[in-house]
């Protein structure tokens, strides 16, 4: 097991739900310490440059073999391979689009009553999370289900050919928003935060070490935990497949995507976003790196710029208030 893990208090947490407690807290890990074992094998059906596959690779390295993945319909239904083969070296339970969190509730109830500590991880797309799967997600979080829900956000319905989702950003072209999306991206994180989970975080495929650490942390917490990973998608976002990491970094550097974690409601902006929230790079560099913002209406671009500015302020202020507590 990589890294050093020190025991911290299991006593009363400031968190409203007494069932949850952080049992361990990690105290440092480097890229070199990430396990060499692979659980995503080299035979996936992902597109070239698919960052969702990359995320899953690090997520499973963090989780290890004692893990069950629960998967609603999404790109990863395809990426995992077709019967009788599988590219995944952990059990993958495929389930209907709307029902991943509920299915995970059933697995969790069974395993925990049997005393099994197996990691139960939902790996769902943004559509399966913010749209059709929202009710099941909310129910599972409200019931305090012991599991980790990871939403990899490629900001559209990838599986069915890039239609808009509630998570598609304002202005973006998709096959069902051929003139650019006229609605803002749904703030799923605030919705999840309203359920007061003991741990939640954002991540981005361009920062695998940050993702790795957050998965480890989430899995050490009892109760429902949530990680929202931005997963740039070359065909969907219309950029060359060798630019996946670059586009992810631009999302973070421009402040379009902020990396943070919230433990028992306490927000901390993560290291890769520290510089960006102080001095974000111009959003135009993010737009121009992708075809989906091609020809974006300047007024819409301005709206997005304001949105990013407001978001940064919101997170910085929340972090300051968290420190004051």
């Amino acid at each position: 097991m990589a890294g050093t893990w020190g025991r911290i208090s299991t006593a009363v947490s400031p968190f409203p739900n007494p069932h949850y407690c952080v049992v361990y807290m990690r105290t440092g890990i480097s890229m070199a310490e990430i396990p060499k074992e692979e659980y995503v094998l080299k035979c996936t059906s992902g597109c070239a440059g698919c960052s969702s596959t990359l995320c899953l690779r690090y997520i499973l390295k963090a989780a290890g073999p004692e893990t069950v993945l629960v998967m609603p319909a999404c790109c990863t239904s395809v990426i995992q391979g077709a019967y009788p083969n599988t590219a995944m070296n952990v059990p993958v339970y495929n389930i209907a689009f709307a029902s991943a969190a509920a299915c995970a509730s059933g697995i969790s109830a069974s395993y925990r009553s049997l005393g099994k500590k197996t990691n139960i991880i939902v790996y769902a797309g943004d559509g399966g999370t913010v749209d059709i799967g929202l009710q099941a997600l909310s129910g599972a979080f409200e019931r305090g289900t012991d599991f980790l829900y990871i939403c990899y956000d490629n900001e559209a319905y990838g599986n069915t050919g890039m239609q808009r989702s509630g998570s598609t950003p304002l202005g973006a072209l998709t096959t069902t928003t051929p003139a650019g999306k006229i609605h803002a991206k749904k703030d799923i994180d605030s919705i999840v935060a309203a359920h007061s989970p003991p741990y939640m975080a954002s991540a981005c495929s361009a920062y695998p070490l940050d993702l790795f650490k957050k998965v480890r942390k989430a899995l050490e917490v009892r109760g429902p935990t949530f990680i929202h990973v931005l997963a740039p998608c070359p065909p969907g976002w219309r950029f060359p497949s060798d630019q996946t990491i670059e586009v992810g970094k631009l999302a973070v550097k421009t402040g379009m995507w902020i990396l943070w974690e919230r433990e028992y409601g306490k927000l901390k902006i993560s290291a890769p976003s520290r510089a960006a929230v102080k001095k974000p790079e111009p959003l135009a560099t993010y737009f121009s790196a992708q075809g989906r913002f091609k020809g974006i209406d300047p007024a819409v671009a301005e709206q997005l710029r304001n949105e990013v500015r407001r978001n940064i302020q919101r997170f910085v202020r929340e972090e300051e208030q968290s420190c004051d507590q």
Partner: peptide, 10 residues
């Protein structure tokens, strides 16, 4: 988990 398989894949 000792015998990982895909359930209900494509």
């Amino acid at each position: 988990t000792a015998n990982p398989q895909g359930y209900g894949p494509l």
